[in-house]
Design a protein around this nucleic acid. Sequence first.
DNA 1: GCCCGGAAAAGTGTGTGCACTTTTTCCTCG
DNA 2: CGAGGAAAAAGTGCACACACTTTTCCGGGC
Lengths: 229, 229
Amino acid sequence: MASDVATEPQAHGASSSNLIRVLEDDILSGALRPGDRLDEQALARRFSVSRTPVREALRHLASSGLVEIRRNQGAMVRSLTTGELVEMFQVLAEMQGLAARLCARRMSRSKVKELRQLNEACERYADRDEHVQFFAANTEFHDAIERGAQNSFLMEENAKLAKRLRAYRWHMTFQPRRMSNSVEEHFRIVEAIERGDEEAAHKLMRAHVDLLAGSATDVLIALEAKING
Amino acid sequence: MASDVATEPQAHGASSSNLIRVLEDDILSGALRPGDRLDEQALARRFSVSRTPVREALRHLASSGLVEIRRNQGAMVRSLTTGELVEMFQVLAEMQGLAARLCARRMSRSKVKELRQLNEACERYADRDEHVQFFAANTEFHDAIERGAQNSFLMEENAKLAKRLRAYRWHMTFQPRRMSNSVEEHFRIVEAIERGDEEAAHKLMRAHVDLLAGSATDVLIALEAKING
DNA sequence: GCCCGGAAAAGTGTGTGCACTTTTTCCTCG
DNA sequence: CGAGGAAAAAGTGCACACACTTTTCCGGGC
């Protein structure tokens, strides 16, 4: 999305936790594409460490779902089928729905005001067709809702899922009318939260996030082709 | 819950994936209690392997949330605060709610019938106050709903969470009237699914699973906010 | 030309050693 | 007797070596 430093040799002293971050960035930014093999020895050379920390990093990425490890066959960047994507969006939609519900129950007036302002930022960028800024503002809006839910566990799970789906959400930003629709949907969600209407907040947020609601499966399929190869 | 083979020395040849299972069992069965330290070398001796596979197993358990690893300080069985528990039950409730919703949308008549039979099994055990069998039957009922949702990702996430919360659900089985209440709630859920009422199925299931469906959670959070400023 | 078997190459799984960090112990000083 | 601090002990992080598995490649038989 931003910097393209990926795949370059790394400086020395990269330790396990750094490794994880760099590899994760490479995968999420698309420098490493789904299906790419992750050779332990090659990575060890690239990062100037031994295979041990590389293995640990790969295991970690595997359990967060970004790579797939098969016994004696090494690791590869996990690729998602359209079906899996739809499933994941369905779950994400529900969790964000829960977050919105909790906001409706717990959010202070001043926080709601901040939320509204975040959406107004989205609106400005949508009006000017500035996708990059809109994407950032949109992310901030959703983050604010997750924080407002005051459920750390929910926030972490949401973050994990959102991370894995980030690339797809990014591409969706470019769908015609998607940005202005989003702003409108955000607006209704804020309203529901403001009047403490849990059911409405939940329902609106779910519909907002759930791809299927907009029958966008075709988009997904197109994206899949683009991203996977 | 069942066999008490834990903490005994293990036969040779236990490889990484076995290790994970055994350690997991030890933690989930309570043989290893929250806060217990997991010494790599001790475990290596106990399983007659070197530290390397032990480390991998511990890393894996860490990322599934069962143990906590701090750099240079080893691993310990993770203990959950009341707050975390409430948060996790809230998320589990929502996900099971989604599963119920999808069942209402997708489940065939014959599958609904099976579901009803599973709940009738629950009812029999509840009537006779047989907690162990009830717990098993209850688990089967919920598993059937997860399968019925036909969303593999949701099923996996549910399974992970349910695993971590299993011990607590077990204890809840012994709450007075809990079993008969469960049966009644199950019954209403099955009815909602049968008539395809997504909203009702979702709502009923969420209430069924959420520990503190009442407002206790919010009181807690309000208090915390007050105390912490 | 194609298929098949076997050896070589490549790559992962695990054992072991050493450096570095954290914890404990124990001695000294107030 | 308690507090502070250095040295020893214990334990983790990483490098490296070797065994075993999987893959690749090549030559012979059909």
